[in-house]
Simulated scan of single mutants.
Amino acid sequence: MTQRKPYALIIGWDGVRHDRLSALELPALQAVADTGFLQGTTMPEESQAKTSTAPGWSTNLTGVWPTKHGITDNEPMPNNFGLYPHLLQRFLDAKPDGNTLACVCAAMLGSTKGPGPILAGGVSTLIFHDVRTHPLGPLGRDPLVFEDARRQLAERDYDLSFVYFAGTDKTAHLSGTLGKDYRDAIVQEDRWTGELINTIRQRPNFAEEDWLVVITTDHGHWDEGGHGGNSWQERQSFIAMARLDGDLGFVPSEQLANVDLAPTVLTHLGVKVLPDWDLDGAPLQR
């Protein structure tokens, strides 16, 4: 039997509390959980880093905690990405003929705002819809991120893709996490996620492709909205992961951590995780 070519899609739902998910109808997330897993995780204590966007996504994408990657806040600061690059860079370093995609709107991911750009280098195609240039901010930019990501996944061949939605975080800041607005924002991101997965399934060579799909977040929120501190509400995260039309092949331990995401995705893509990378996470395939 011919081995299918590995691909990976990581979808970020910014500022989504894990404990709010169970009360919602989220077909895409549930489908991933049913064939793989959905498990809560915890971001570092405030003594290491604030529960904020830049530290959270730096941790998710590099496979090391803030004590190594150096990003502890959303403010300008030096980083250690030269020693601990994000996984899109790791992938291209190992496979120079590969192709990576990032569709994002957070200024710190795609521009020099704060400690950014977190996605400097390693991205074959970067589509950046700056939240600062739309009157609705993330709420206006997320639909553009979705449409561009869907088009790229349908028409081009990316080994590794990262798609980031910010509307849930913005909604929590505006309305808190207890009401209908926040629930609706999560449902919308789940709907977009489902459409991206359906786009992958409709690719002409999908039967010959081995897709790993990951959904995760960078931090939680207080009930009334806001984050950055040390409460259990703010430190919440989660990882959902599945192989489309395939057995995941492993079960995560109770000690699953956000730093395990990057080495797990790289292993799926055929990149050997080396000891001298000094990662804090490890491939779940072990």
Rank of each mutant, 00 (worst) to 15 (best):
M1S: 14
H219I: 06
W192N: 04
V187P: 03
L126E: 02
S22I: 03
A8W: 10
Q236W: 10
G229L: 10
D190V: 07
E45L: 10
L101E: 08
G194P: 06
T264Q: 02
Y182C: 05
Q152C: 12
D169R: 08
K113G: 04
Q233E: 15
W277P: 07
I186N: 08
R191A: 10
A154E: 13
L87I: 11
P252T: 08
H86R: 01
W277A: 02
V104Y: 09
T35Q: 13
R183I: 00
D97V: 08
L284H: 05
Y158K: 05
Q255K: 14
S161A: 15
Q89G: 03
R286W: 11
M77G: 12
A242V: 05
W192V: 09
Y182I: 00
H18K: 11
W211Y: 14
K68D: 04
N80E: 11
W65Y: 12
M108C: 06
T72Y: 09
V214I: 15
V259H: 02
S175F: 15
T177M: 06
G116P: 09
L136K: 14
G140K: 03
G179A: 12
L38M: 10
A149D: 07
F238I: 07
K68C: 04
D142N: 11
D73R: 11
K50R: 15
L244C: 05
A166E: 15
F146C: 00
W57P: 06
V16A: 14
P275G: 10
N230E: 09
Q152M: 11
Q48E: 14
G194T: 03
G12Y: 07
T67E: 15
T133N: 12
D34Y: 06
P143W: 08
L212K: 09
L26F: 10
L21I: 00
I71Q: 04
A54E: 01
S161P: 06
P283E: 10
T42M: 11
L21G: 08
P44C: 07
M1F: 13
L101K: 00
T267G: 06
L153Y: 03
L160E: 02
S175Q: 13
T217Q: 06
I127D: 12
H221P: 02
L178F: 08
I200L: 15
T62Q: 09
D14P: 04
W57T: 04
G70W: 12
R151C: 09
L29S: 07
Y164A: 13
F128A: 02
E25Q: 12
D157F: 08
R17Y: 07
T112L: 03
D93C: 00
L109T: 02
T72K: 14
E25I: 01
V187T: 13
Q89W: 04
F162R: 04
V214R: 03
E45Q: 13
K68Y: 12
